[in-house]
Amino acid sequence: MALITFVGFPSCGKTTRAAELSAQLALALPPHLSLVTVSDESLNIAPSVYDDSRAEKPARGALFTAIQRLMAQDTVLIVDAPNYIKGFRYQLYCAAREMKLRVCTVYVVATPELCREWNASRTDGRAYKPETLENLLVRFEEPSSMVRWDSPLFTIPWTEEVPVTQIAEALLTGSVKPPNSGTLAAAKAPSDALHVLEQTAIAMVSAIMDAQAATQGSGGLVTLSLSALSIQITLPSRNITLSELQRLKRQFVTVHKKAITLGTTEKGAVDWAEESVANKFVTYLEENFKP
């Protein structure tokens, strides 16, 4: 349904505002929607992980994994975490697009002086070390309504209330951006695709050599018998050597191996059946045969 990403300086009041928003959205949203908040605290991620970048990276990975797991069409997910890196917010945006969720960003604004004061007065065991706090303040990347992954952006100064009505409207009636090639999961080839690709190409080479011998190199349209298939190909009016066919076969197999092992986002269904591979090979050969 929707993803709400909270952003702000450390100890700026994000958790307090996230709790306020959750309580008020629970009254404003339809009953069929569930409201879930995921945070560093809910995942037992200690503030001390931000003392060291080597510890912070896996912690951020754990947060991202939890967010992906909780995303659903019947869930409004609130992410109450530092989220101070714009690259991480972009990751969240892409994951939301893949799930066809609405998104919005809530920027809780407080001055660095207030953040230092509130952090020093915390008694919940979630305070940052002073040097860590200063480091995070310097590294903070402010959200912007001009970029798609931070939009729509709701900015809440520490003296103002959460605009629940506007946020609820964005979640219920805002546009859902469809996935694009950058967010679509790659289609996976079947487990025997590599075997079918290699064996079909080998059989095609053998069948072409047999057809060429039967026509004595006159070329033209010929029909190849391939297992239970009949495949037509137009041969050039010259003698095609086995080494030339082997070279073209290797090139064809190499190109399509990449599509199998890395996945593909081609439009439409990707067919790795023997007949489809044979027809692809025919097209490749006809385009690469020299007159």
Rank of each mutant, 00 (worst) to 15 (best):
M99V: 03
K100D: 01
R102F: 03
V103Q: 14
C104P: 05
V109A: 07
A110E: 03
A110K: 01
T111M: 02
P112L: 11
P112S: 09
L114S: 12
L114D: 14
L114Y: 07
C115Y: 04
C115F: 06
C115G: 07
R116N: 08
R116D: 08
E117G: 00
S121Y: 00
S121Q: 15
R122F: 09
R122Q: 08
R122K: 14
R122L: 09
T123S: 14
D124Y: 11
G125F: 08
R126N: 12
Y128G: 03
K129N: 11
K129A: 15
P130I: 07
E131L: 06
E131R: 09
E131S: 14
T132L: 05
E134V: 02
E134Q: 14
L136Y: 08
L136A: 08
R139N: 14
R139A: 15
F140A: 10
E141C: 10
P143V: 04
S144A: 06
S145W: 02
S145T: 03
R148Y: 05
R148I: 13
W149Q: 04
W149K: 01
W149C: 06
D150R: 01
S151H: 10
S151Y: 12
P152K: 07
P152Y: 06
F154L: 05
I156S: 03
P157F: 01
P157W: 05
W158Y: 13
T159R: 07
E161K: 09
P163Q: 07
V164A: 02
Q166R: 15
Q166T: 04
A168W: 01
A168L: 01
A168T: 14
A168S: 15
E169Y: 00
A170W: 05
L171F: 03
L172A: 02
L172Q: 14
L172R: 09
T173D: 09
T173P: 00
G174S: 08
V176I: 15
V176L: 09
P179R: 02
N180V: 05
S181E: 10
S181R: 09
S181K: 08
G182D: 13
G182M: 09
G182I: 01
T183Q: 05
L184H: 07
A185V: 04
A186G: 01
A187R: 12
D192G: 03
L194A: 10
L194R: 11
H195C: 06
H195K: 14
H195M: 11
V196Q: 09
E198D: 15
E198C: 02
E198A: 12
A201H: 03
I202P: 00
M204V: 11
A207K: 09
A207M: 11
D210G: 01
A211G: 10
A211Y: 07
A214T: 12
Q216G: 09
Q216H: 13
Q216P: 00
G217T: 05
G217Q: 03
S218K: 15
S218L: 14
G219M: 08
G219Y: 08
L221T: 12
L226Y: 02
S227I: 00
A228F: 07
I231R: 02
I233H: 05
I233E: 05
L235T: 06
P236R: 07
S237I: 01
S237T: 12
N239C: 04
N239P: 00
N239L: 12
